Simulated scan of single mutants.
Amino acid sequence: VENTGFIYYYEMKIVWRIHNSCMEAENHTEVSQLLLLGLSDDPKLQPLLCGVFLCMYLFTVLGNLLIIVAISSDSHLHTPMYFFLANLSFVDICFTSSTVPKMLVNVQAQSKNISYIGCLIQVFFMIFGGMDNFLLTVMAYDRYVAICHPLYYTVVMNPRFCGILVLISWFVSLLHTLLIRRLTFCVGTEIPHFFCELAEILKVACSDTLINNIILYVSAVFLGVLPLTGILFSYSKIVSSLMRISSAGGKYKAFSTCGSHLSVVSLFYGTGLGVSLSSALTHSSLQNSVASVMYTLVTPMLNPFIYSLRNKDVKGALRRLLNLPA
């Protein structure tokens, strides 16, 4: 009897383990859909949100696409500065195209679903959006070399070096996406956002996210703190160099080439700071989502307008591209 009871105990223990394993597999590994809660559940706001986001998205894509075509078609703009600007426009198009269309489809279909693969794609391009920091830093360094060391400009800013700088950010984006693949999610996981933001995904994951958080903090330093430090260093050197120029006209002409870049930097880091403060001061998912609209849509939409309005070379290239009178 004792042996029978002993055997029965272990049989039940094995069955319980198998049951738990099956439930874990069902709840975690078989997840193919996640839920995006969006910006609002109010049916009256849905048409307004859809119209506003659609207009902003079309302006973003059209404006950045014009910048890319103008730079590609005009030989005068085949320089490192405009190579990085074309990459910046390409990143902005990819970033907004991975998030906004899905949100518009969900609003129209009154659905909150997003596929697991679609979520991974959004994560990749969201991190890829962090490449903006890196590109703005490289553009600041480009201006520093052009103004402070003009004789070495073509040697330092060679095509191979520029290509390597761009590829580094691609690698960082891919690393984050591969690390997300190791996470598991429960059935019915809800993401309190209108797209799969990395920080929100790590909060709702059902598995250990320690490694992901460590990589997130490291990349935040690599793509956040270091780029801003580089920009401030470059412009400190530029200002120091301009102070040694005696002619007021020479100072203005040299610094005017930095005007567009400074405007974009101010807009980018200003909205980023606003989002960070919003996240720190409030725990409201809605307010955080609204703040995120600034860097996911507003900044990419305004970048081409800033460069086309403040940069004579880009304005000239756009006029020639569209056959407009000077």
Rank of each mutant, 00 (worst) to 15 (best):
V105K: 12
A109E: 13
V145S: 02
A140H: 06
F134T: 12
V145R: 08
P101E: 09
F134L: 07
V172A: 09
T154N: 11
L174Q: 10
I168E: 10
G163D: 02
S97F: 07
L104M: 05
T99K: 03
V172P: 00
G118Y: 09
I168D: 01
D142T: 15
Y153F: 14
T96E: 03
Q122H: 07
N113D: 06
V105D: 03
V107G: 01
T184V: 06
F128V: 00
V172N: 10
F95A: 00
T99E: 03
F95H: 02
Q110C: 07
L183M: 11
S173P: 14
V100Q: 06
G118E: 06
C162R: 11
I121S: 05
F90R: 13
C119A: 14
S169G: 13
S169Y: 02
S98D: 03
L178N: 05
V172R: 10
F124K: 00
H176F: 10
Q110S: 14
V166F: 15
N113V: 11
Q108K: 14
L175C: 10
L179D: 10
S98V: 04
F171P: 00
Y153S: 08
V166C: 11
P150N: 01
L178Y: 12
L104W: 13
G129S: 05
F90C: 03
V107E: 04
H149Q: 12
D142C: 10
Y144F: 08
L135K: 07
T154R: 13
L175G: 00
N158D: 13
P101V: 04
V91D: 01
C162E: 08
L120W: 12
Q108S: 06
Y152N: 09
T184N: 08
I117C: 07
T177S: 13
Q110W: 03
V166N: 06
L167K: 13
V172Y: 14
